[in-house]
């Protein structure tokens, strides 16, 4: 709840990327094995899910769901 409007700074993608890679690696998950496991349908469903959530987050961050009152 800051009184400074404007888009907050994002966490660098590099940090997120490293975090995810490291977590997967430490748990001994080989990405090459995982990639072949997903069917095209599953990929499509996940893709739509991510796109939908991306839209929602963008909408929230750019235009906050705000209540406006004139007093």
């Amino acid at each position: 709840m800051s009184d400074l409007p404007g888009k907050p700074k994002e966490i660098p993608n590099k940090v997120i990327d490293l975090l995810v890679s490291d977590t997967l690696r430490r748990n001994g998950i080989n990405l090459e094995n995982v990639k072949g496991k997903l069917s095209d349908e599953q990929k499509q469903a996940l893709k739509e899910l991510v796109e939908d959530l991306t839209k929602q987050v963008d909408a929230f961050v750019d235009q906050p769901n705000s209540t406006k009152k004139d007093l």
């Binding site: 709840m1 800051s2 009184d3 400074l4 409007p5 907050p8 700074k9 994002e10 966490i11 993608n13 997120i16 959530l53 991306t54 987050v57 929230f60 961050v61 906050p64």
Partner: peptide
């Protein structure tokens, strides 16, 4: 007023 902290959190999760 904007809840920027929460927005950052949500963006991080999306990332």
């Amino acid at each position: 007023t904007t809840d920027t902290d929460l927005a950052v959190n949500i963006e991080a999760m999306l990332q």
